[in-house]
Design a binder for these strands. Structure first.
Lengths: 148, 148
DNA sequence: CTGTTACTTGACGTTTACGTAAACGTAATA
DNA sequence: TATTACGTTTACGTAAACGTCAAGTAACAG
């Protein structure tokens, strides 16, 4: 339920107190919160759940590109109505390197499963959209009638 | 906890409060549960929330076509990740007869809003699907390499 | 009458996804 | 040095969506 993944980021090489390294962009937790319109609590919660795991600089959490991508994925998953656990499962597929052949087969199964879910969702979506269209048309008719 | 049952807005559409009508198919709660693969608890819960409101025959709940349609809508909404409250809101749009012109404008706004949500969801969906495709392709490549 | 089956209404328990303090650490600034 | 800003962990609170008893009713079989 966790992600091993050792942080390859910055192992405390030379640092000057007044020169924040300009290499690949990094962010504090508040920056992230602002960018993605979520609270810091939420971000920490996702970390607890193993969805993120930022580097640390002392106590502080430092977020890099990888974390941005992950957070984006999480929020997209939420918009699609998946639970955090499900999202964790999906993200595992994104970056699991399937060494064994068994693993590969397993992953292919999960991919197929996931695809089925998404396709069902797409059907639901399209149907809902057409129904909304009908309702709207009805509304506009009514509006027309009243105005005359 | 009670449910004040927020105004059964049957403005226009008539319903017989009590009548042992044998005409259009009716169902008991267990029938419904089986058909839709949910528990009776869930069905009663939805009623508490105002999403269903079946006729009664004595104490027993009797479900008709209208209820079937509603339940289907609820479950579809859930598959799309909406909360029961949101679903209630959507269903209001389905069968609210917007008498006043203000109501009409309000509904059109809500429709537009809802549409935006769904369109966003569709984008998320398509992107996720293409990403899954990429992952799968990668998997299949790996599988090919190993086999040789 | 007794037992079984299906249904009812509470009412408390559980999981998920955070919100909301409380209490403390670190660092720049007035 | 005191304040302010931002960060940390720990922990209790909460709304949603049911699950899970408990206890009672109503109909019917044997």
């Amino acid at each position: 339920m966790n992600t091993p993944i050792p942080a390859p980021q910055d192992s405390g090489a030379d640092r000057q107190p007044e020169a924040p390294e300009p290499d690949s962009q990094t962010f504090g937790i508040s920056d992230l919160a602002r960018q993605f319109q979520v609270t810091t609590r939420t971000i920490r919660f996702y970390e607890d759940k193993g969805l993120l795991n930022p580097a640390r600089q002392g106590m502080k959490r430092i977020y890099g590109q990888r974390d941005l991508v992950r957070l984006r994925l999480v929020l997209r998953g939420k918009r699609l109505g998946f639970s955090l656990d499900e999202i964790a499962g999906i993200m595992d597929m994104y970056d699991t390197d399937p060494g064994e052949i068994g693993q590969l087969r397993y992953m292919l199964n999960r991919l197929a499963e996931q695809r089925r879910t998404l396709l069902q969702q797409r059907r639901d979506l399209e149907q809902t959209l057409t129904e909304l269209d009908q309702i709207e048309a009805q509304c506009r008719r009514q509006l027309g009638e009243i105005r005359e």
